[in-house]
């Protein structure tokens, strides 16, 4: 045994290092790690805590029932308000803080209705150059009720 003393020292060194590692590990492990699985459990709440940007159509409907009435009977009945008007959570929180900007129909309508071979054939689409010759869409169509006449 005496002749192997140096080996015992080296073994002791390794064991000490291992113990230090285990102690440090105990210290730095996040508290909620393993709560639901192999991850930091509190990460779920942190991700859920992100503020929203799009308020959702039901929120818009709470105030804008006049618009809703028109929209409901039209071809656009099922489209979310923010699909055209953009994210309005800030406006919903405080109507004074953020006012929605009325979108430019020349750009807005073309996004959906500009003809494209990949669009479903039954979907109404036009070549805006031929169809309106550069005229704004809302000079004929009302976006909330696009049918003319």
């Amino acid at each position: 045994m005496k002749e192997a003393a140096h080996l015992i020292r080296v073994a002791a060194l390794f064991v000490t290092a291992l113990l230090v590692f285990l102690l440090v590990r105990q210290k730095v492990m996040p508290a909620t790690f393993g709560q639901y699985g192999h991850f930091r459990g509190s990460a779920l709440e942190e991700i859920r805590a992100r503020p929203i940007a799009f308020a959702g159509r039901p929120t818009c409907e709470m105030c804008h029932d006049d618009q809703l009435k028109v929209l409901k009977t039209s071809k656009h009945a099922n489209i979310g308000c923010e699909a055209c008007h953009g994210p309005q959570a800030k406006h919903a929180d405080d109507t004074a803080a953020a006012k929605p900007i009325l979108p430019d129909t020349k750009l807005l309508c073309a996004r959906c209705h500009e003809a494209n071979a990949a669009k479903p054939p039954k979907f109404p689409q036009v070549l805006s150059k031929d169809h309106s010759g550069g005229e704004a869409c809302n000079s004929c169509h009302q976006p909330h009720s696009p049918k003319i006449g």
Partner: peptide
């Protein structure tokens, strides 16, 4: 590096 052990018998 000797770890204090000088035994080289």
């Amino acid at each position: 590096l000797t770890l204090g052990s000088y035994n080289v018998s």
